[in-house]
């Protein structure tokens, strides 16, 4: 995946909460705000934001996706860093959007937004230079590197922060490079394959009984959590930012 080498890293940032946090996971969006504020950021939330357009992009309906992306570029005007607590939505902004606008006149507008976009962990570590996260979180976790952060610094960044937290242990598991099976609309158009992939992922991740299953993408966790729940063996899932937030609260 391509990624702009020189992205703005000022401390006034725009938050793209993502449609999943808007609809289901307000806790994660709230944690993102608190964590960014702890890191010294002033967080702006452009209220007209909706979705990154990825569902239509993945379905092949690029005209529909571009319509959404054009709206998004208008909502996130300016030159502040845009922070996204999701590897997949961030990748849509910095990689998918330039791809679907390759032959469009307004590619430069889209590319400009792409160059300002950061996935949250990437921003905290590689943008703000945070190496260690304070506080305490006594738990054993299995961390799933969300697939859309492949080729970026996000996965390593999240792990670095998590591993620096007092009391937290990240446990290894088998076939770690494998996808959880969500894949956006893939999860409903290939439900059997998607669920089989998810069950396999769960099997590996729960093999050494972690306290939490953790990722940087709520879509993966919604899928894995939903599968475990339906299967009668629920697991506790957390976005890594919820751990960062929680650790702060136990900081004293």
């Amino acid at each position: 995946m391509t990624h702009s080498p020189s992205r703005p890293n000022g401390r006034t940032v725009q938050l793209m909460a993502t449609c999943l946090c808007d609809a289901f996971f307000d806790d994660v969006a709230k944690a993102t705000v608190e964590v960014l504020e702890h890191a010294g950021c002033e967080v702006e939330f452009p209220e007209n934001q909706t979705c990154c357009g990825q569902p239509a992009f993945n379905c092949g309906d690029w005209p529909a996706s571009r319509e959404v992306m054009r709206h998004t570029t208008r909502v996130f005007e300016g030159d502040k860093p845009v922070i996204v607590p999701s590897g997949s939505c961030a990748a849509m902004l910095f990689h998918g959007a330039p791809l679907e606008f390759e032959k469009e006149k307004d590619l430069p507008t889209v590319q400009k937004l792409a160059n300002r976009t950061w996935e949250l962990a990437d921003f905290l570590v590689n943008g703000l230079g945070i190496e260690k996260w304070p506080g305490r979180f006594p738990a054993r976790i299995a961390f799933h590197r969300a697939c859309h952060t492949r080729g970026t610094g996000s996965g390593e960044a999240a792990l670095k922060l998590l591993q620096s937290i007092d009391g937290l242990e990240v446990i290894p598991f088998g076939e770690a490079e494998q996808c959880c099976g969500f894949g956006g609309t893939f999860s409903v158009s290939f439900p059997h394959v998607s669920s089989s992939m998810g069950c396999l992922k769960l099997e590996h991740m729960t093999a050494s009984n972690p306290d939490f299953i953790v990722s940087g993408d709520m879509s993966c966790l919604m899928h894995l959590g939903g599968l475990a729940d339906r299967g009668g063996q629920p697991v506790k899932t957390l976005h890594f930012v919820q751990i960062l937030q929680s650790a702060l609260h136990r900081h004293g």
Partner: peptide
Amino acid sequence: LKLRNRGHEEHAPSPGTPPMGAFAKLASSP
């Protein structure tokens, strides 16, 4: 992804793929 887009343009059948027109309208009207 490019081939998915080509399939969409050429109206290739794709069972289970949700239509995205309504989503696009919704997601571009705050």
